[in-house]
Design a protein around this nucleic acid. Structure first.
Length: 429
RNA sequence: GGAGGGGUGGCAGAGCCUGGUUGAAUGCACCGGUCUUGAAAACCGGCAUACCCUUACCGGUAUCGUGGGUUCGAAUCCCACCCCCUCCGCCA
């Protein structure tokens, strides 16, 4: 959510953002300005009435104290008229505020000036590439064949028990994931993050805070009976951790890492994109979240990005960094990078991390502020997050890129202490 | 799930029975000043949030868990909901 005053003063900029992000009509801005005007008019009138009514009430109080009951009765009768006017105005104000709020929630975050303008994924900029794509003197196979071969995952039984997109992991497959989780968490903690174990369900206020509601409701599984949502990412509970709080400057920046399963309905997806581990309804992810002072958020974005990239480098996975264009970056972000790893068996790039600066967009909804030591006036902070990293596609890429001529899969050195051996082969599954 | 107690400013904690200068005593923390070679102590002053009006100053409104209600007037009375604590039950 953007600041109303900001919209008032930068109407053209916000309109441009809506157009560039391709998320709706720029006329929304005009509606906001009109509704804001209307709300302020009503509010001013209402407050005048309240001022009058309060003054009368005070007078009555004094009369009662002085024992002038009859005089008081007369004022009471007169005040009843004011009360009716007040009620009507309150209703008007409530309606105006409601419409204003609703439209405000439809206005996207304004992209940072460094973000390229564009409409489709083709307009994203490949900002950086790292590593050599592996070459093979045999036919590299996709990961689903390798999962099968070593019985690392069972999709059919997952479908039976839960549904498509909820695989079982077995043996070395399950252990492999567990070793990645531990590796990622340890790296994050070493980089200065505080580890968080988070609730896997959140209430509506939390879902609204990070921007999943009102628009992206279809993304989430919902426990209707209890009004709870299964988290689509740890971003939701972890960012909401400080909702409605005023932090002190000395505790910033706050950096959290959290491992959680993530649940996504992914309604409407199909085809090769969902083959194997490419897209699941439940998957594991380690999420990194920053709470920072506004002036430092773009430094923090690069820092966060480098933390995620380091993991890929340690794992020896070739990857590229995309700077997302305005049309492909999403509603709530001001700037966003995607990291994609090369998947040698499928011969395609797979998105494994998305790193974003939300500036005040989330924090304003959540009322997360900090008190600067200098002037003491509470100020909205900036929030950022990024995956560090999402597991299934990392597993897919590792299996595919590290497959060997003899059919075994070697394990990157950094992972071996976690996994407990140097390869996956027919002996150790 | 049952019974009882409670949710007040950054924190602690009065006020609620007996509705009326209580946006809220007091203490701590914090900020500024005096004093001091410096610091501490002491003393003086300041210190909630959001919003409206205003060039500005002044002024005003709302907020005592949340939402309703009673009343001329509610932190204070009534109702519902949420959360916390204690005891009981159930349970990994």
């Amino acid at each position: 959510m953007l600041d109303l005053t900001y919209i008032r003063e930068n109407a053209d900029l916000v309109k441009k953002a809506i157009v560039n992000k391709n998320t709706g009509s720029p006329d929304l801005v005009d509606s906001v300005l009109e509704l804001d005007e209307a709300w302020r008019n009503v509010t001013t009138k209402l407050q005048e009435i309240q001022t009058a009514a309060n003054a009368e009430a005070k007078k009555i109080g004094e009369m009662m104290k002085a024992g002038k009951k009859d005089e008081a009765q007369a004022v009471i009768a007169e005040n009843a008229r004011l009360k009716q006017v007040q009620k009507d105005l309150e209703e008007d104000q409530r309606k105006a505020a409601e419409s204003l709020e609703a439209i405000l929630l439809e206005i996207p975050n304004v992209p940072h000036p460094s973000v390229p303008v564009g409409k489709t994924p083709e307009d994203n900029v490949v900002a950086f590439e790292w590593g050599e794509k592996p070459t093979f003197d045999f036919d590299a196979v996709p990961h689903w064949d390798l999962l099968d071969k070593y019985d690392l995952a069972d999709f059919d039984r997952g479908s039976k028990v839960a549904g498509a997109g909820f695989p079982f992991y077995k043996g070395a497959g399950a252990r492999f994931q567990r070793s990645l989780i531990n590796f990622f968490l340890n790296e994050a903690v070493d980089a200065g993050y505080t580890e968080i174990g988070a609730p896997l369900v959140v209430n509506q206020d939390s879902a609204r805070g990070t921007g999943q509601l009102p628009d992206k409701e279809d993304l989430m599984y919902e426990a209707v009976r209890d009004g709870l949502y299964l988290i689509p990412t740890a971003e939701v509970p972890v960012t909401n951790l400080h909702r409605d709080e005023i932090l002190s400057e000395s505790e910033l920046p706050i950096k959290y890492c959290a491992y959680t399963p993530c649940f996504r309905r992914e309604a409407g997806s199909y085809g090769k994109d969902v083959r194997g581990l490419n897209r699941l309804h439940q998957f594991d992810k380690i999420e990194l979240v920053h709470f920072v002072r506004p002036e430092t958020s773009y430094d923090a974005l690069e820092e966060l990005r480098s933390h995620a990239e380091k993991l890929l480098q340690l794992l020896g996975l070739p990857y590229r960094r995309l700077l997302m264009c305005t049309g492909d970056m999403g509603f709530t972000q001001a700037k966003k990078y995607d990291l994609e790893v090369w998947s040698a068996g499928q011969k395609r790039w797979l998105e494994v991390s998305s790193i974003s600066n939300f500036e005040t967009f989330q924090a304003r909804r959540m009322k997360i502020r900090y008190r600067p030591i200098s002037d003491g006036k509470a100020q909205i902070i900036h929030t950022l997050n990024g995956s560090g990293l999402a597991l299934p596609r990392i597993v897919a890429a590792l299996l595919e890129n590290y497959q060997q001529a003899d059919g075994s899969i070697s394990i990157p050195e950094v992972l071996q202490p976690y996994f407990g051996s140097a390869s996956i082969n027919s002996e150790n599954t």
